[in-house]
Simulated assay, not measured.
Amino acid sequence: MSASYRGGRPVAEIVRSGFAESLHRGSVAVTDPSGNLLASIGDTGSAVFPRSSNKPMQALAMLRAGWAPGTEADLAIASASHRGEPFHLAQVASVLGGAGLGEEHLQCPADLPSDPVARNAVVAAGGEPRRVYMNCSGKHAGMLAACAANGWDLATYRDPEHPFQRLVTTTVEELTGDAVETIGVDGCGAPVLAVSLAGIARAFSRLVEAPAGSDERRVADAMRANPKLIDGTRGPDHRMMTALPGLLAKGGAEGVHVLAAPGVGAVAVKIDDGAGRASTPVALRALITTAGLAVPEDAKPEVDALMWPEVHGGDQSVGRLRTLL
């Protein structure tokens, strides 16, 4: 195991036909609206890679670099892990076009859409993987737009020593209150910065509690106003932010999920085995039961479906994922 992240305790189990089939361990940090640690499970002080949960902080750095998005939807797609649906692709094109750039400038890997309907449509039409289909292309487009606004080199925008990436590091350290321990390479090829779960939760609290009109609040508001852009028609972040107005949600690879609500606090989760199926239910349960997020009556069916996802056998439900908080 990594010397920096020591792991957590059981936080979820898969129950099939009344039998506990699998167990997920993890760590959970809960902060209050001021960013103070309210409760914790496991190791919340050692560094982890937030993966795509870093994106709101990277988008904040884009604004601080002087990028002026044409619309708040442009800012949302720069914060997103999109699924390659047609409206996602149009928004990425809007960011690139606003900076006088094109898909050829993107340096994320070529991929097929991750949304199954969009992927099937591309394959049926004889399409091939493209950089714009990759789920981080909105972030890469925003990074390029920020660089173009400053006259910074476009060919090296992923280099950790590039002026934009140095600004990202400064921004992440400011919001989390942590010193970045390690800079790695994310799945999309951009730098990913290792900070603590407590720090990540603190950063999200600061985004939702920031004054209206501030750059921090602009990022949070853009994401909440455009939840379908963040992770697609069928994505959990879209579903949570739609069911619970005011909630800010951003998942990341390898079992990371971060939620925050104004006046309530924030939750950051890391599942030790990297399972995304456990991170959403655990984060949502912690925000409700520990931080005290109130769930409106009309939102309860959707919240319950996300917090206690079904396990299927054949064409019927035979169990659920059960959180152990």
Results as ranks from 00 to 15, higher is better:
168 V>N: 12
170 T>K: 08
171 T>N: 11
171 T>I: 10
175 L>I: 01
175 L>A: 07
175 L>H: 03
176 T>R: 01
178 D>W: 00
178 D>S: 01
180 V>L: 03
180 V>E: 12
180 V>C: 05
182 T>M: 10
185 V>I: 15
190 A>V: 10
195 V>T: 06
198 A>G: 10
199 G>S: 02
201 A>S: 12
204 F>D: 13
205 S>M: 00
206 R>F: 00
207 L>P: 08
208 V>E: 01
209 E>R: 03
209 E>D: 07
211 P>D: 12
211 P>S: 09
212 A>Y: 06
214 S>L: 08
214 S>D: 10
215 D>Q: 05
216 E>S: 10
217 R>T: 07
219 V>G: 07
220 A>T: 12
220 A>Y: 03
220 A>M: 08
222 A>K: 08
225 A>L: 06
228 K>C: 13
229 L>S: 00
230 I>T: 12
232 G>Y: 05
233 T>L: 08
234 R>H: 13
235 G>F: 00
237 D>R: 10
238 H>A: 15
242 T>C: 05
242 T>V: 12
242 T>Y: 00
243 A>H: 02
244 L>E: 10
246 G>I: 09
247 L>S: 14
248 L>R: 11
250 K>N: 14
250 K>H: 10
252 G>I: 15
252 G>L: 12
256 V>F: 00
256 V>P: 08
258 V>C: 14
261 A>Q: 11
262 P>H: 03
263 G>R: 02
264 V>M: 05
264 V>R: 03
